[in-house]
Design a protein around this nucleic acid. Structure first.
Ligand SMILES: [Mn+2]
Ligand SMILES: [Mn+2]
Ligand SMILES: [Mn+2]
Ligand SMILES: [Mn+2]
Lengths: 239, 239
DNA sequence: ATTAAATGTTAGATAAACCTAACATTACAA
DNA sequence: TTGTAATGTTAGGTTTATCTAACATTTAAT
């Protein structure tokens, strides 16, 4: 077995930098955020990031923030592509539920083969989105920009399309299964409750009271924007 | 991500002990053989085997040979099952050729999920053999005993069924593709050439001269034994 | 029975990825 | 503007899996 170009952990760190630095309007990542996301202590993340800087995969100055280099971004995107194609395979072909696929894909994404991924993609009919509604990068690492906001950023009274959910929040995913909420459902943001960030939504003529996690993790696009995005508060999310 | 019960390498060592100790009539494995099979130096293998002995996965006395404990054998068999089911998936569903699947399965076999394997098995129609003709252990880790010998152990003049090939010998697998030789082909062992272990076989009314690797790596069952195995020189192979 | 070759063991070193404890810098709020 | 909280850095240690060099035992051939 030939040595991998990047270690298992190097890949995970690059993916974490991508997720944090390009999430909800941000453009760089701090060591502390990274260490939390990766479940390690700050000095561990710091050491790894210094190594990735040596390898020219990240841009990172002393006491500064971290960004991906072109090469680092390409590697991270390749990982996201693998992750989402595996999730789609597990969901569509092996019939795992959407709260089960993320954890398994965390392992499968590190299998060092682009060819498996390309063949799976074809087998699945070239899907553009994974089971959680997140866009699947193409072979070149490009994602079609996905504009969306969290429900908590929405305006009570308006109609939205539920386009994506957090892929790693098990209990949220199970809550949604229970109420039969799915990607692409039309939902109305009825009202804010003003208590613990809760709110009320209306789906298929039934009101559902949802909690703070739902409000912050579920991503929506407002009806007008389905055709032409122009709301200033909808953010491009890669991950 | 929860810690694995066994590390990636511990799994590989157990599989190597299984392959060597239960291959062609043997019942234990030496440190030197193991180190060669694993591509490490003898002290490395020695150290790991001591650790596996602590964990009660192998039986191993000072200056003695290595055998699997019941627990170690179960873990090793689980790995072989995963390996062969992944190989079958890659071959049957993703259409990889039989010389490509082994290397990829070396990675996939370590994905820590029994459920993926069970669902793949069902998807594939509960196959009993992998693309190289090797038997797939069931959920309990049992393999149906497979009696077979190498062509070099055969008798010139007799008819055989080609039942299995080495899964890791790329050039042999490519040679066989070239001559359109497949699992389950009926072949006649025409003659021994007495030079470099070469021989001549006859398949579909055409003679093919084959080399030493072919003679030693291709496994066959003689026609009579297809129904009832009784040749004393046919050996039970798990791996 | 002796000796040489093959095989196995020990000791000590290294690299990767993690840790804790202590220290340094930056950000921001009073 | 200055002090505290948040964030980042350094130093030094641990574990796992690897290595080399030296030594010990077993096996097999003379
Ligand atoms: Mn995911
Ligand atoms: Mn996803
Ligand atoms: Mn194989
Ligand atoms: Mn095989």
């Amino acid at each position: 077995m030939k040595p991998r170009p990047l270690s298992y952990q190097e890949e995970n760190y690059l993916k974490a930098v991508l997720k944090i630095s390009e999430g909800r309007g941000k453009k760089d990542a701090g060591i502390l955020e990274l260490s939390r996301a990766l479940g390690v202590k700050p000095p561990t993340a710091h050491q790894m990031l210094k190594k990735l800087k040596e390898k020219k995969l990240v841009l990172f100055e002393k006491y500064g923030k971290v960004m991906l280099s072109a090469g680092g971004r390409k590697a991270a995107m390749a990982l996201v592509r693998k992750h989402r194609i595996w999730e789609t395979f597990l969901h569509d072909v092996l019939k795992f539920s959407w709260d089960e696929v993320h954890e398994l894909a965390e392992y499968l994404e590190h299998i060092p083969s682009d060819e498996i991924i390309n063949r799976l993609e074809k087998l699945l009919g070239n899907p553009k989105f994974d089971p959680h509604g997140d866009p699947i990068p193409d072979v070149g690492g490009n994602v079609r920009p996905a504009f969306r906001k969290t429900l908590s950023m929405g305006t009570p009274g308006r109609n939205y399309h539920l386009v994506a959910v957090s892929d790693s929040h098990q209990s949220l995913l199970q809550f949604m299964s229970k109420y039969n909420l799915k990607i692409n459902d039309k939902i109305k943001y009825v009202s804010e409750l003003g208590l613990d960030g809760m709110g009320v939504i209306r789906v298929r003529n039934k009101n559902i009271t949802v909690g703070s996690t739902f409000m912050h993790e579920v991503k929506v696009v407002c009806e007008q924007c389905m055709k032409k995005c122009k709301c200033p508060d909808e953010v491009w999310c890669v991950v």
